[in-house]
Design a protein around this nucleic acid. Structure first.
Length: 917
RNA sequence: AGGCCCGUAGCUCAGUUGGUUAGAGCGCUACGUUGACAUCGUAGAGGUCAGCGGUUCAAGUCCGCUCGGGCCUACCA
């Protein structure tokens, strides 16, 4: 089955594109990717071959792009992920599936809003001065201006997205999905509004989720403060007792309402019912026993600030303590902190409180103290735990579902070492704070009535109806927006039209695989899985391939401040998109970060050069009339000479392996297989073996029937196999192969992906050819080392191999550049001086006279080799004498050892006789 | 504090379910260019697989501990 052309056009030929590369019959000697890469990308886009019109009866394959920030720039990590996504989509497209790679962007609430805020501040105004409506209009303008950047950069990489299906998280369809999800979750009681302690960013002036808090270890101080203890209420006289509490945040003591100790701490049991007097403010702080207190830490007494510490908040709830807000949403002290401190920032207030405590003699001591402090991931300042009214989503039930999906295999994490982390996070998940005090985003679909009711509805019209009011004027909408990740969580199905039951949803959902970095496993992946299971009953993708982080050549994380950032666009400009893609794909080994070295990219550019030149050579030298053959019937191995049968067999084997590697997301191994097949087997061996026929006489050619067809066919399939990784080069080169129209009339993008023709597999020719290759290599080495005349004799005990060698005698001689070669039917006798060496069952004798060379060094080398071999022989003999080995090891293993021993002994005697001679 | 990953050639990394002479690329050395490719070819040097112990006929591979490096999660003020 061959994929149909989605949009019939003239056969693709960039030379018909005035701006594109000139596809001449002669290939330019110079390999220069920039001459054709972007031309092909334009050409593909124009012909619409990436627009998916699903064909019934075909398998579907779908990848959703992890939507980059709409106004962002693609970094090297995006390049890696996009390469892998494109690779898979191209592979499945070539397999004839309905293969969709859906592109899109994320509105990226905080990030985008901050950028526009900075922009308007440069103009001397501010977000607040502009007001919500005007500011949002500015943001939309900004979005429209930069929106195209992402596509440009994906195009640069050769990405085969279906841009007709592009989505944006704030577009109409996705906004409807967001409203629907919110309304449903609210209806199910999973979304609620309430006053709780949240992570507050004083810089951004919004709540953030637990995930957006980065714990940093900081060098701080531990302040020991003495409090006066007061007796029973109404007896305020000084009992003379002092207690000492330890704190890292003295400024919060202004909001203290209690002092806690461990219930079993005998030191403080007598304090029950008494109170401490808060210095500076004189407030009475009751003592409360609470198991949260660690008796070993500090003095075992903890000041309790219910409204500015998450633990204290819980303690406060348990003991019915009041809370006092002493820090406001901008991070400044409130009036309740006392006139002396009101209006000061947290930092200034801390210094002033300490100073006052010292003056009043309450400061016992100050110790250095290393501790962990939550910082806002986005803005960098310490998070202020604050009590405020927010919307929360109870995700515990969904988390259990997501946990189960990985456990029962509906969802596979690749590599699976992430399973435990997944489990740990989901098992300990807490309610998700989904409201943000921002403007850019999905405004929460909740309206409040004058009489204090909350109406959650899909839109204003519905809210008016549900509220039973005359008009929207009687309602006020919740000003907050949703966490960006709330809409991202719906991405795999909202992009396909959910909640409508669209054709796309039926065809492409659940999607096939998600490819993203492990850094957003919880932010995004887990939430997609949770919402996917909740809203659709299915996992949103069958597998998640988690890539490592791309680092610099030294393995250091890239960062702007370090100046070690590699820009994909620059790398593509220098080395070409295909080389960058090949490098990234071949470095993607599971569970590892990726050190990216430009030298390596240069190496893969050289691979491109190799492909270019191998094709150039083939096209220049193949016989007239040679064509790419598309089916086995056109190229039956029985009629071919051994080298042709060998390369076809290797081609088929490689295709089978490469398919298997791609299907298990082993991009690195697939790339390595392709690299070694093309460079090693095809160029280094097969093309060299083809030269005598291609460059020689008609008689030479007669010995190698259909050599041109074979070479073209192997090139065709090798290029097709490489196409998902190196799309531009393979298209540029493949278009020139005579007969490729029979594979696909238009483009390699839609040509079938080679699966490995089983009838081309030929194990015996592979064994024989491998023996010959080993022998050729050894002969070359012997000649290089000894500097003898290039005359060689070969002998083998295997009759089959002897026939083979006799047939390939001329070829063997050419490959070693020999003056003469004899294939003998009898072993080298001691009269000959014995064989020089013995590899793969082939005895080798250099028959030529000595021309020089360093005899001492040669002998030393031989001796070393014999010694090494001897040690191995002794080990093997001992092993074969070991009865438990013979009894317990499987028979084939024992046989293999015996055969190896015999071979090593043969080789040793060869080497010895060579040493003696 | 808990969890995860890593430690293999000068560098960056592969190494499937344990099978016995541990691989690749880059770098390095020698030789080779009228001939597809010097973005190349041929050959070569280079490793007690971090250490210790265990399981096994057999360990780079499985288990435990130690050392070294990285990351994630966590409410010790």
């Amino acid at each position: 089955m061959q994929p149909e052309i989605m949009s019939p056009t003239e056969p693709m030929n960039p030379s018909s594109d005035p701006s594109g590369s000139a596809l001449q019959s002669e290939m330019d000697k110079r390999f220069e990717p920039s001459t054709y890469e972007q031309a092909w990308q334009r050409r593909w886009a124009e012909s619409g071959i990436f627009r998916v019109e699903p064909v019934a009866g075909r398998a579907s394959f779908c990848i959703m792009i992890p939507p980059p920030n709409v106004t962002g720039k693609l970094h090297i990590g995006h390049a890696l992920q996009s390469t892998l996504q494109d690779l898979l989509v191209r592979l499945h497209r070539m397999r004839g599936e309905n293969a969709l790679w859906l592109p899109g962007t994320d509105h990226a609430g905080i990030a985008t809003q901050l950028m526009v805020e900075r922009q308007v501040e440069k103009e001397g105004t501010s977000r607040k001065a502009l007001g919500r409506e005007a500011f949002l209009e500015r943001t939309w303008e900004w979005k429209r201006e930069y929106h195209g950047n992402i596509r440009e950069q994906l195009d640069l990489l050769g990405a085969s997205c279906d841009w007709t299906r592009e989505r944006f998280t704030l577009d109409e369809g996705l906004s409807k999905a967001v409203a629907e999800a919110f309304v449903r979750l609210h209806g199910e009681g999973l979304i609620t509004r309430g006053e709780y302690m949240v992570n507050w960013s004083p810089v951004l002036e919004t709540a953030v989720s637990d995930l957006e808090v980065e714990t940093k270890t900081v060098q701080g101080k531990l302040y020991h403060v003495s409090y006066l203890v007061e007796g029973e209420p109404g007896a305020p006289e000084d009992t003379g007792e002092r207690i000492v509490v330890a704190t890292t945040r003295p400024e919060t003591m202004l909001g203290d309402t209690a002092v806690a100790f461990h219930p079993e701490d005998e030191r403080y049991a007598h304090l029950v019912g008494k109170a401490a007097i808060l210095p500076l403010l004189g407030r009475r702080l009751p003592f409360v026993p609470d198991a949260m207190v660690d008796r070993e830490f500090g003095t075992g007494l903890v000041k309790i600030t219910p409204f500015h510490d998450p633990n204290d908040f819980e303690v406060g709830k348990r003991h019915g303590l009041p809370g006092i807000s002493v820090i406001d949403k901008s991070g400044r002290m409130t009036a309740e902190a006392g006139a002396e401190f009101a209006g000061l920032t947290r930092e200034v207030a801390r210094a002033k409180v300490v100073e006052r405590l010292r003056e009043l003699g309450h400061l016992v001591k100050v110790e250095d103290h290393v501790h962990n402090v939550g910082h806002s991931q986005r803005s960098g300042e310490p998070i202020e735990p604050l009590v405020s009214t927010q919307w929360f989503c109870d995700v515990s039930g969904m988390a259990a579902q997501a946990l189960a999906a990985v456990e029962d295999g509906r969802l596979r994490l690749v590599p699976e070492s992430w399973d435990k982390t997944w489990e740990h996070w989901l098992a300990n998940i807490r309610p998700w704070c989904i409201s943000r005090q921002l403007w850019w985003g999905h405004q929460i679909p909740a309206w409040y009535t004058a009489d204090g009711r909350t109406i959650v509805a899909h839109d204003e019209e519905e809210a008016v109806r549900l509220a039973g009011v005359a008009s929207a004027a009687e309602l006020s909408r919740d000003p907050d927006v949703l966490d960006t990740w709330f809409s991202s969580a719906l991405w795999p199905f909202s992009t396909l039209g959910w909640p409508e039951q669209t054709a796309d949803l039926a065809t492409f959902y659940p999607t096939s695989v998600l490819i993203t970095g492990y850094d957003i496993l919880f932010f995004w992946v887990a939430r997609m899985v949770m919402s996917g299971l909740h809203f659709t009953g299915e996992v949103p993708f069958a597998a998640v391939h988690l890539t490592g982080l791309v680092r610099d050549a030294e393995g250091v994380k890239m960062s702007k401040t370090k100046g070690n950032v590699l820009d994909p666009a620059e790398l593509i400009g220098e080395y070409g998109a295909d080389a960058v893609r090949f490098t990234l794909a071949s470095l993607d080994s599971p569970g590892r970060d990726i050190p990216l070295n430009p030298e390596q990219i240069a190496g893969y550019r050289a691979f491109g050069n190799k492909i270019w030149n191998a094709t150039r050579f083939a096209l220049a030298r193949i016989p007239e009339g040679a064509r790419v053959r598309s089916s086995l019937d056109d190229l039956l191995p029985a009629s071919l000479a051994a080298p042709e049968r060998w390369i076809l067999s290797r081609l088929a084997a490689t295709a089978a392996e490469v398919n298997a590697k791609f299907d298990t997301f082993r991009f690195d191994e697939a790339c390595n297989r392709l690299y070694h097949f093309f460079w090693g087997e095809l160029c280094d061996w097969y093309i060299e073996m083809a030269k005598p026929a291609l460059l020689g006489s008609d008689a030479d050619r007669a010995l190698r029937p259909r050599i041109g067809d074979v070479l073209l066919t192997v090139l065709d399939q090798a290029l097709r196999m490489l196409h998902p990784v190196m799309p531009c080069l393979t298209e540029e080169v493949w278009q020139r192969l005579p007969g490729r129209e029979a594979i696909h009339p238009e483009t390699i993008c839609l040509a079938p992906y080679p699966q490995g023709e089983p009838a081309w597999r030929d194990e015996s020719v592979e064994i024989q050819m491998e023996a010959m290759i080993e022998a050729v290599t050894r002969v070359r080495a012997l000649l290089a080392e000894t500097g003898r005349e290039r005359k060689v004799g070969l002998w083998t005990a295997s009759p089959v191999l002897e026939v083979f060698l006799a047939e390939q005698q001329a070829l063997f001689a050419t490959l070693c550049r020999l003056e003469s070669l004899e294939v003998r039917s009898r072993a080298f006798s001691t009269a000959d001086g014995g064989p020089e060496d013995l590899v793969a069952g082939i005895g080798i004798k250099i028959l030529g006279a000595k021309k020089g060379g360093d005899e001492v060094a040669e002998r030393a080398k031989l001796e070393k080799e014999i010694e090494k071999l001897g040690a191995e022989i002794d080990r093997t003999i001992a092993q074969l004498a070991d009865e438990s080995f013979l009894a317990k090891a499987p028979a084939p293993v024992v046989e293999k050892r015996r055969a190896a021993l015999a071979q090593m002994e043969d080789r040793r005697s060869s080497l010895r006789s060579s040493l003696a001679g």
